[in-house]
């Protein structure tokens, strides 16, 4: 009897090890997990196929960064246009910059920013989204960012790697980027739901960002503040992403349809905070059709014409 139990235990352990072995190569084979821990990153610093990407300001990067990381500050990813909007940088710009940083198509990218606030984390998350929207699916975000890395006393340096040019080609994937026309269609035809990643204060229309032209939210939007996605500020925790169970509970609690085929358009003011909701909905919780509205409220208020904006209510519009 005892022998049988032991053997069953051994069999289960063997199965477990087998599954783990199976799972590990999956990371390098293009199915990167959305988040990697600081410990995982330290263990993999020497990986040839890993590109560590620092999106903090240049001055921060130059002062100290994770060993081997290359730097491309967030401002180069979403760039201001003549129309006054902030949009994803042109394909050609991203291609040349990322090739210069040594990005190959088969590489696993780990992106990080500061990790003190949800806003910090959202920079990394927005770049995570842009890389996926430019055809590079094999990307993870460093959970807790540079803040957690340094809190834990891990090594930093200020050496700039000199990579040989990569072969990455940026190509927009329309299934991940919503344009104003997509937004308009969704409002008029109702085939997608909106998720507003700004604070509930802006969603409600009590306040707005100074350069945004209107108060309130896009009709039929759910309020799911990007701030709620991280543990930042709770007992001085760095901005790590909340655990999956909590995230699932919150997304159910705001009333988002549970069908993972639901078409979702996430937006905020400039498509930065929206990155957090995108990462959570698409890559952690498994909603298959999530787009970020690149122009977000900054553009919507300028070009909306007769389309409504809803204010002073939590309920849906009209």
């Amino acid at each position: 009897m005892r022998y049988m139990m032991q053997s069953r235990w051994i069999r289960q352990a063997a199965l477990f090890i087998f599954l783990v072995v199976l799972a590990v190569p999956a990371i390098s084979a293009g199915k990167a997990p959305p988040l990697v821990s600081t410990q995982w990153l330290e263990d993999h610093l020497q990986d040839q196929n890993l590109l560590i990407l620092d999106v903090r300001a240049d001055s921060n990067y130059n002062f100290a960064h994770i060993p081997g990381a290359v730097g491309l500050a967030y401002k180069n990813w979403e760039t201001p246009r003549d129309t006054g909007c902030l949009l994803i940088a042109p394909e050609a710009d991203l291609t040349s910059r990322l090739q210069g940083l040594g990005l190959n198509n088969d590489m696993h990218v780990v992106v990080y920013a500061h990790g003190n606030t949800a806003s910090d984390a959202s920079k990394a998350a927005a770049v995570f989204w842009i890389l996926q929207a430019m055809g590079h699916e094999n990307v993870s975000m460093l959970n807790g960012g540079f803040t957690k890395w340094t809190f834990e006393g891990r090594v930093v340096d200020n050496k700039k790697p000199a990579p040989s040019a990569g072969n990455f080609m940026a190509k927009r994937d329309p299934s991940k980027i919503a344009t104003f026309d997509d937004v308009k269609d969704a409002i008029l035809n109702g085939d997608a739901v909106f998720v507003d990643a700004r604070s509930s204060v802006q969603y409600f229309g009590h306040e707005k960002r100074a350069d945004v032209g209107c108060y309130g939210h896009i009709p039929y939007a759910f309020t799911l503040p990007g701030d709620f996605m991280t543990n930042a500020g709770i007992n001085r925790a760095p901005a790590t992403i909340k655990d999956k169970k909590t995230l699932a509970k919150m997304v159910k609690g705001i009333g988002l349809p549970r069908n993972h085929n639901t078409k979702i358009i996430v937006y905020c003011n400039t498509a930065q905070l929206a990155g957090l909701d995108y990462l959570v909905l698409h890559n952690i919780l498994g909603y298959k059709h999530v787009k970020v509205y690149d122009g977000s409220m900054l553009e919507y208020c300028k070009v909306k014409g007769d389309l409504p904006v809803i204010r002073f209510t939590w309920a849906h519009g009209r």
Binding site: F222, K252, I254, L256, W314, A315, H316
Partner: peptide, 12 residues
């Protein structure tokens, strides 16, 4: 916790 009232806020 972790919901808007009756899940009825936002959406259609």
């Amino acid at each position: 916790r972790y919901s808007w009232s009756y899940g009825s806020y936002g959406g259609r």
